[in-house]
Design a protein around this nucleic acid. Structure first.
Lengths: 198, 198, 198, 198
DNA sequence: GATGAATGAGAGTTCATTCAT
DNA sequence: GATGAATGAACTCTCATTCAT
């Protein structure tokens, strides 16, 4: 592929991320993506076959981005098991706060059938392995509850950090608007850390 | 309104819940709702003005349903603070497992802009007040961490129980498929209870 | 169906015949049909499902038209076997000359895959039966060659009368333009009758 | 033109014949031709100006091919007028059976407007002259009907042999499927010969 | 109250053709 | 001579909404 083509393809992907994260697979418009990217609509089909495959590429890309931001935001080499929960909570709260397109794409994928999720297999395997090594130390030292396995631990971290953003609109009206004030955004992480016995 | 009209209107709402929970506001089809409900499409406009307002009614209806199911599933009069977390976790895990349209509608609303969520204000106020009374007893008895307030507590419960279902498709491929096996579905509640110091 | 709908549906079919006979299934445009018929494009999909099914309806309609014109143009009750070939040749020459959309639709169907031809089954069964009765008399009287069966006989009639119109454009340039002059159009039928031993 | 260019041009024509004979001028795709030929699409425009001109070249090429196959299949030097009809029928039945792209291209051209047929002028003049010489002998010997001229005679031969293949799809359903069975394919030529008084 | 008929804007996708290297 | 990249118009089909009965 020529340089020009690579740029076009990249521009499409970039703006497809924006469009799909805002409106989902069904709500997102191929026309809109082309326009945002400043490319001819047909190029999308030339490089990504169809809308569905483009969404797949977007989803995949978002997970690569997550992986990269995790690497940047978490210095796993220097984190001990005692700091693990706090580090993870902080990391994902910031990640989702600063890059909302990530949890949005994931949420759309889950709602719209999960037919593209297969492209995610193994993307984060290495990362999880490293985190699990730290977690296991904590288990050995009885720092984490005996019966809690790694998957559940990570799941819980993902839940609270993701849900805080993904369900803000409804929680604000049904549970409490205070949860999402600037101030609370700052200490929600601490409170949950307390809850999780950190 | 005549009895016949009320029935028609109810049928529309019922099947709109199904359609919208499956496909969202954008993905859901007015035609499909009319067909599912066995009514003429025009009736939808007669009773609900437009698609948007119908979705609003659906969202509202779902929260009423949640409130009702909470009342059925939780006997707040007889629950002590020591049992609270377990009772809540159990309740919402079961609720979302058995009635997935509820978390789905909520997830759609959050993704699609949250423009209808205002109808949820105060719907659950009484319920939260009752739960908070129990929670406060636990705080007084130092059963719950000092710095954790009620909203964060409820938020955490909602997070883990909701996220378990709403993000299953992607977590299955990225984190672990084991989390969602029959067996794990049964003890995930227990593990999280441990994590939350239950 | 209401009267208005029936009219709309009929208008669509009528103009679809024109469009498809001119340009074929692939060359014909749904937009053009809608415009010709003066109806909203969507009505085509409401009444005929899709372009393919519409073409099927057109093909079917054309055979019904052929059947009707045969009935009008051939008085089978009064035709003896000695007049049969001449009557048939005359009939089909005139039919294809006056209503070229018929052989055109048939030619398109044959070229474009024949996937709709199944709708033609049995449409002309009764007509063929009646013609065959006359033909059989001729066979009995040794008027027609011993070894020529009815199907081949009809096929030959169809061939020469159809081919004269369907291949005019190329024959004109490759064989002879004289064949298609006004004068020749008049006696081609006679010449072929001579060839067929009429 | 360089040898390389000539090869490219030839490859384009060859595969254009395939594509256009299958799908017609409108249905055939320039992209598909380029791919089939294994050449860059732009080469098509370099050598043939546009799609229309390419089709013209294809049509012309097919008539050259017909002329060549006639020369191979018919030994006009040794055919007497008594054998002429049989020889012609046999030849064209076999020609169309074995090389269906020929009658297909011709049929497309006729349906799609006949705007390219002018390139056919005179291609077969010499061949027709030779056949006519034989035919004239037959006329002199009163073997052929007095009033049948050469053009009509050839036209009839072309009709039955061409129509047998070009209208198979519809005739199978409307007239009789038996006509096109293996067995009938073998003696249809004989039956028609009988009809034509051979 | 209820229904069938109709509409206009817009959705995804494809294609002949041209540009740039 | 040859190729990959790009384009704009067009095509089939759909949908929320309104009209007429």
């Amino acid at each position: 592929m020529q340089k020009r083509a690579l740029e076009t393809k990249a521009a499409i992907l970039k703006h497809a991320v924006d469009e799909f994260s805002e409106k989902g697979l069904h709500g997102g418009r191929v026309d809109a993506i082309a326009e945002r990217a400043g490319v001819n609509k047909q190029r999308i089909y030339a490089y990504y076959e169809n809308k569905d495959k483009l969404f797949e590429a977007v989803l995949h890309h978002c997970f690569l981005e997550i992986r990269q931001r995790e690497a940047e935001g978490l210095n796993l080499q220097s984190i001990t098991y005692k700091e693990l929960t706090e580090a993870l909570l902080d990391n994902y709260f910031k990640l989702h706060r600063d890059f909302p397109h990530l949890w949005r794409i994931i949420a759309w994928e889950n709602l719209e059938g999960g037919n593209h999720a297969h492209v995610l297999t193994n993307i984060k395997a290495k990362f999880f392995k490293e985190v699990q090594a730290i977690f296991n130390e904590g288990k050995k030292a009885s720092y984490f509850p005996e019966d809690v396995n790694f998957e559940t631990y990570m799941f819980t971290v993902f839940s609270v950090t993701g849900f805080y953003f993904s369900n803000q609109k409804t929680l604000k009206h049904s549970l409490s608007a205070k949860l999402f004030t600037k101030k609370n955004q700052q200490n929600i992480s601490q409170q949950i850390l307390s809850l999780l016995g950190g």
